[in-house]
Design a protein around this nucleic acid. Structure first.
Lengths: 168, 168
DNA sequence: ATTTATTTTCAAAAACTTTTGAAAATTCAA
DNA sequence: TTGAATTTTCAAAAGTTTTTGAAAATAAAT
């Protein structure tokens, strides 16, 4: 496979996979493009490479920045802004986990805590199943939360090394 | 909070969270409803509880069944089909991980393997960064894949117990 | 074999999300 | 300042996904 072909494939697939991960297609494509670009790119570079509008690039680069996956860089002597992506995949994964935990898991656990104490008859079959389900999810979520906290704080080599030993 | 109110909240939030996890809103709501229902429900029960059409219930229950999260049950003496959800949250999580691994991670790793061997000059800055990025993702994904395999096979108590010791 | 209950299908409608592009705002240099 | 380059915004258009509901198919009872 030629490099140009492989690049196009990578960008398009990363985009498709992104949609399964709560990230929209274009955002994931821009991310993919920046991941394989050795040097920072401008808005215009991205527009041209991916054939998308200026507004679209602007909106999605900002979203990538808010996810902590992309940085704006200013090159000396250049008027335009450049964008560059974190290349270390462990850091990328850690950052995504951190954001999703904050945006999804933490609010869910907060809500479940509230739902657990309901008024009135807790002896009915209905109430029992409700409380059981909610507390089951809350427990599980709590464990996951702790585990992710450790992962986020962990150093890559320490973590992967230990995990491999653990699962060997 | 009253039970009815808490139930409605749970269903609606589970639906909202589902959308972040590659499951559509209604599918997640039906799942939530079944999770908190002590007894199996019919298509009509679900239609009524969630105010959605028959076609919608039919489509989404089938999808839930294909994810292995819901079962069709036939109650003796009843003409209609009933639906029931697996209530053990560890099994639910395991099942979701298994399906997503199959649907997303495995195909991605397969593709990345193909992209790694490109023709021609592998010394250019462009080619180097591309190969680096792809192999980085592939490595990371490979580790994740192994780890998830172990998790899927693991028994809850063994797994959570060990993990807690490990992360204490 | 016919009727009745139930489930499935799927085309069209509704709802939702993403993209565009041109105008407004901002930034920088002369 | 003023003007050119660049970035941002956002309403409307395009695209995508989900939902509906009625007709077709299937299954069960009489």
């Amino acid at each position: 496979m030629k490099l140009s072909e492989a690049k196009a494939q990578f960008i398009s697939s990363w985009g498709a996979f992104g949609t399964h991960w709560g990230i929209n297609r274009t955002m994931a494509q821009i991310h993919a493009l920046l991941l394989i670009s050795p040097d920072p790119l401008t808005q215009d570079d991205i527009m041209e490479e991916l054939n998308i509008s200026r507004g679209n690039v602007n909106m999605n680069t900002r979203e990538l920045i808010s996810w902590g996956l992309v940085d704006r860089v200013l090159l000396p002597g250049e008027r335009k802004e450049f964008f560059t992506a974190e290349k270390d995949i462990w850091k990328v994964a850690t950052q995504i986990i951190k954001e999703r935990k904050k945006r999804e898991l933490d609010p869910m656990l907060k809500l479940l805590a509230q739902l657990e104490d309901i008024e009135g008859d807790k002896k009915s079959k209905e109430a029992k199943q409700f409380i059981d389900t909610v507390s089951g999810i809350r427990n599980f979520g709590g464990q996951a939360d702790k585990m992710l906290d450790v992962m986020i704080r962990a150093d890559e080599s320490w973590f992967l090394g230990s995990l491999l030993k653990f699962f060997k």
